[in-house]
Design a protein around this nucleic acid. Structure first.
Length: 464
RNA sequence: GGCGACGUAGCCAAGGGGUCAAAGGCGGAGGUCUGCAAAAUCUCUAUUCGAGGGUUCAAAUCCCUCCGUCGCCUCCA
């Protein structure tokens, strides 16, 4: 079965060819843990999860690595810049290490709530300082660095194809906004591999290195850790589209400088989630919505996942509560249909129909993760009146391996005793054709947050 | 200033030269069911794809112009 993915490196949808047959290595740029993840951040991880699940569904063995950026990085490049983690620590009166642990934990919990399969390896930058130092040494030995003002810089002028990922042109216009940044840089695009010159005396996170006590530049962690776990060549690197021009561009430059050969075959980037009034959701703008905020508003985290799957990962998506409502209602109906299928006669399993529908689904997800189309196939199955329940259930289960919406989950509903009592009372009233009393009881049950649906000679209650 | 993306029904959103008189979901309208509801179910809900040109036997899909929206170029998913 062929798989097509849009590769940022070539800007084309390409047929995926793994480095090793039936195996794929994926590296995902994780979160900088100085604050909670917002729902925009989370889009990136739902995306990489779908990617991984798609490969698993196609019978690949997947090794998925994700980093946690827990080394502080600067909020801006000028002298006002301050370290994000230090800022977070000061804000909350905690140590940077406490901050890091707290938000890492919160992040992993959000991922779990979204039914994201935990990456095989979740690696923290602070636990791989030695690997970074070793890699910087390699880059240095290969002649791609210089030291200025106490910092080790990567010399981008030594790379012919620097910026190949973003189609960057190294002219003055492109560099315009960076010129004033750092007087020690030889070229505007150069970046720091190792800092010993601090902006803040109090910088809490520091380590010894051949270049002096300090801390690593941002980009090196991903190069060092991905290669450590996936090898010096690997298949796929994912991340948000914002990483294309700087972070991933620099990762490529330093990695290829260190290894002396091409590094990653496929670069996949997800587009942003945009907040209502056409603004990027960002931590620094302070306009972020957490997954927990949605839960507080009565949405299930998987409603949000469904919402995301309704749009292609490479398209900007404008968040709105209306769209969340649509997703929640859709999920509710899907669940209701599945419960009904489970409750009714299974019927005969139709392997021909199964193969046909499964193929449609596979074609959708294998085509650059077309989840909107995949969901359309799901609905076609659910609404089919030719497929048996057994076939539908099997298909749903199969689809959910990729969708990850936990569609087959049993939701044991505990109905409070008093609600059941009222329902029984109402049943009696209805038998006695006392409609007034029956209606009053229905209202009372609704007030308790349950809805009652009449059946032939009984009722069904569920949480509304 | 440089780079990139997008504009499809009330809303969200696939499609990306003919099989499209354009998937799917949400919402809405009507019918069936019901004591009435709810749930379920059926039917309907874009002769048209931002606007205007062009290429073609054929365009939502390719090209040009314009209008509008958004992202990146500072840390960011």
């Amino acid at each position: 079965m062929e798989i097509f993915l849009t590769n940022t490196l070539t800007k084309k949808k390409e047929r995926f060819k793994p480095l090793n047959p039936d195996r794929v290595g994926i590296y995902t740029c994780g979160l900088t843990v100085y604050n909670y993840a917002h729902i925009g951040n989370l889009r990136a991880y739902v995306f990489s999860d779908i990617l991984k699940r798609m490969f698993l569904y196609n019978d690949y063995a997947v090794k998925h690595v994700m980093n946690i950026t827990d080394v502080g990085h600067l909020t801006s490049d000028d002298d006002e810049g301050e370290d994000k983690l230090e800022a977070g620590a000061r804000r909350e009166g905690k140590s940077v290490w406490e901050i890091v642990d707290f938000y890492t934990d919160a992040f992993l919990k959000d991922m779990e709530a979204l039914n994201i399969i935990r990456p095989d390896i979740v690696c923290r930058a602070t636990e791989h300082i030695d690997d970074m130092i070793e890699m910087i040494s390699r880059i240095e030995a290969n002649g791609y660095t210089y030291i200025a003002g106490g910092n080790v810089y990567f010399d981008t002028s030594k790379i012919d194809d620097y910026g190949k990922l973003s189609g960057l042109k190294r002219n003055e216009e492109s560099a315009r906004s960076r010129v004033e940044a750092d007087p020690y840089k030889k070229n505007p695009f150069d970046f720091v591999l190792w800092f010993t010159r601090y902006k803040y005396e109090s910088h809490a996170m520091q380590w010894d290195s051949p270049w002096g006590r300090g801390f690593p530049g941002w980009h090196i962690e991903c190069s060092a850790m991905s290669s450590k776990y996936l090898g010096e060549r690997f298949d796929i690197h994912t991340g948000g589209i914002d990483h294309v021009p700087i972070h991933h561009t620099n990762e490529i430059a330093q990695s290829e400088a260190a290894f002396g050969h091409d590094w990653v075959n496929y670069w996949l980037h997800n587009e942003f989630l945009i907040i209502g009034n056409n603004e990027k959701m960002s931590k620094s703008l302070g306009n972020f919505i957490r997954l927990q905020s949605l839960v507080d508003q009565g949405y299930n985290p998987l409603d949000y996942r469904y919402y995301l799957l309704g749009a292609h990962y490479r398209k900007q998506l404008a968040f709105s509560i209306e769209a969340m409502d649509a997703a929640r209602n859709a999920m509710k109906r899907v669940r209701a249909k599945i419960n009904e299928m489970k409750a009714n006669e299974p019927g005969k399993f139709d392997s021909t129909a199964f193969e046909k529908m499964n193929n449609d689904f596979r074609n959708a997800v294998n085509d650059d993760l077309n989840t909107p189309k995949a969901l359309a196939v799901l609905w076609k199955v659910l609404d089919s009146d030719t497929l048996s329940n057994e076939t539908k259930l099997s298909l749903t289960k199969e689809f959910d391996r990729v969708l990850g919406l936990d569609l087959l989950a049993e939701e044991p509903q505990e109905i409070p005793r008093e609600v059941i009592t009222m329902a029984e009372e109402r049943l009696e009233a209805r038998r006695a054709r006392n409609w007034k009393k029956a209606d009053t009881l229905r209202e009372k049950i609704a007030e308790q947050g349950y809805e009652i649906m009449d059946k032939k000679d009984g009722y069904e209650i569920r949480r509304s």
